[in-house]
Design a protein around this nucleic acid. Structure first.
Lengths: 333, 333
DNA sequence: GTGAAAGCGCTAACAG
DNA sequence: CTGTTAGCGCTTTCAC
């Protein structure tokens, strides 16, 4: 099943076979011959050898995905696998590498280059400003879940503002009067946008965003106590939570007070881990950071960059994230 | 930076360069020349072109990872990324494909074959008996998180028995007297092993495994009510939970009763989602299905199969899974 | 010991 | 319209 065999069995030359099988025969090859070749090819179940082709063309239809130490977050898996998936719909394969530091990153990039990848995804799993390594300068690059500090390459990231805005709107629609934000005390860029969205939604609804309803916590005991205090001091009736861990504190505190989520209080969280969707999803509405959506968009851009170079300017795409609709934030009373 | 350039710049032939740079020069090339070539190579930062080599050798040092629809479980991400990682330590790259059915699976396999992968990981993310597709017959294959029904290929899976056993031992050491198992009402092979381990540990400790302490639930409200009932009817003081979702029901019920985990009751769960590790980890000991460990082992086996063919018989490896040690199951009283 | 030559499977000028 | 030729970068006999 090489072109050579097809050429022999049909009595034409290899070049003709190549032309036909690449669809570049229009007006160059006798249609009858072309048909003959095509039939033979399908008969023999011919499949092109991408390696041989790449050697000649310097194009591999392979993409490289560079991510930082990948084990950390379950979100990372979704992004990468989504990119895999999206790449394959465009007829590309994906090589993933993960790096744990500057040096290793350069190594991995070198490896990917040796394999002749056509372009790179460059990803920082926490959506912050990042620098594209110089070694990627001559290649098509798309940033995933991060923003390029120089705006030289396109960036694709979740629309954090929208997440915060949507979540808060849901709580307002559930008739919540005192909506708290339970976030992360570490500085995360993702949080800035969400908080802004939260504030914006409140203001639009004529609520004034009370700072004492914003509660940023770390982990474990201290976090739990902080949320405890939030309950006691502020008596919120709606909660927008940065992630599942933060949502959990709210659940725990509510349970201890005999309050039922979805009845006495409402909770909306951003769902990374999915635990709550599995457990009490009808009581908890989650806003999903739709990882697949992000990587699909990134793949689209990267393929575009590769196949129609110098056609698009770099831009930052905020991918709108979907509300999981199964939940309810209804509050009795 | 091709061998040709090195040959030109050192005045030797390409063949010699190839010999030297592949370390096959011992007793065949004048050591002085060899040194010259090597120096030139490092000076020029020569890196071999794997595609060109593959074209000649029919070996690509690329592995294929076949997984079923991948979005589902966060665990999947860990396995795949672990395989990626492990492959790279052996100098291999990894192509991942995910399939959603029989036909698409055959397509993906065909694609991987065209790229000339040297071997396959074949994975079913739920550790059950599975069939290796015939199209993989002539290739080195290792099953990941599943067992081959004919025992024709090696299988690597988590040691579920051990997980259940270890978890229960922890609870016994915390001096729990009535240890419940909160599991999944669907039939999952992973659960059989864990349950067996649980029972075994209890028996060894001279407890008789009381079936009314085993509580298999589905999701949401019904699940929560079932666990509620377990609390009321059986008053367990220790809980081994199949996954985070099940652990959550226990947490919720405990909170409603004013019981504190790590104080009044003890909980050990199998950690897929990590939520609890982030929230109250000091109170919750989790047994981790160490995804990376599994894929590392699988990669080791696959590479072995490729590089020393017909040397090993297929076998089933149960990878022991690590207890996260940070937690405590201490119970006061 | 070393190099010339053939060829892996394919593409791309360029003649005819 | 079609075939010849050259060559991508590498490995591998096989003479010298």
């Amino acid at each position: 099943m090489t072109m050579k065999e097809i050429a022999e069995q049909t009595g034409v030359s290899i070049s003709t076979v190549s032309l036909v099988l690449n669809g570049r025969d229009e007006g160059r090859v006798n249609p009858a011959l072309a048909k003959l070749v095509r039939n033979k090819a399908t008969e023999l179940g011919y499949k092109i050898n991408p390696l041989a082709r790449s050697l000649r063309t310097n194009k591999t239809r392979i993409l490289g995905f560079i991510s930082e130490e990948v084990a950390t977050t379950p979100y990372a898996g979704g992004i990468i696998l989504g990119a895999q998936d999206a790449a394959s719909t465009y007829g590309y394969m994906l090589f993933t590498v993960s790096t744990d530091g500057k040096a290793s990153e350069e190594n991995e990039i070198a490896t990917l280059k040796r394999y002749g990848v056509d372009g790179f995804f460059y990803s920082k799993m926490s959506n912050r400003i990042a620098h594209v390594p110089e070694s990627l300068n001559e290649y098509p690059v798309v940033m995933v879940d991060a923003t390029d500090h120089e705006n030289k390459v396109p960036s694709v990231e979740p629309d954090e503002f929208m997440i915060g805005y949507d979540a808060t709107i849901r709580l307002l629609q559930a008739d919540c009067k005192r909506i708290a934000y339970v976030g992360c005390a570490e500085n995360m860029i993702a949080q800035d946008g969400r908080l802004a969205g939260y504030r914006n939604a409140l203001q639009e609804a004529g609520h004034n965003a009370d700072p004492s309803l914003v509660c940023n916590v770390l982990n474990n005991g201290p976090a739990l106590r902080a949320v405890d205090k939030l309950f006691d001091d502020e008596h919120p009736d709606g909660f927008f939570c940065f992630n599942d861990a933060r949502a959990w504190y709210v659940y725990e505190c509510a349970a201890r007070r005999g309050l039922t989520v979805g009845k006495d209080i409402s909770v909306v969280g951003v769902d990374n881990h999915r635990v709550f969707a599995e457990t009490l999803e009808p009581q908890l509405t989650t806003v999903e950071q739709d990882a697949f959506k992000i990587s699909r968009e990134a793949a689209r851009k990267l393929v575009h960059l590769i196949e129609q170079p110098r056609t698009t300017l770099p831009e930052i795409v905020s991918v709108p994230c979907r509300l999981i609709t199964g939940g309810t934030v209804a509050r009795l009373a």
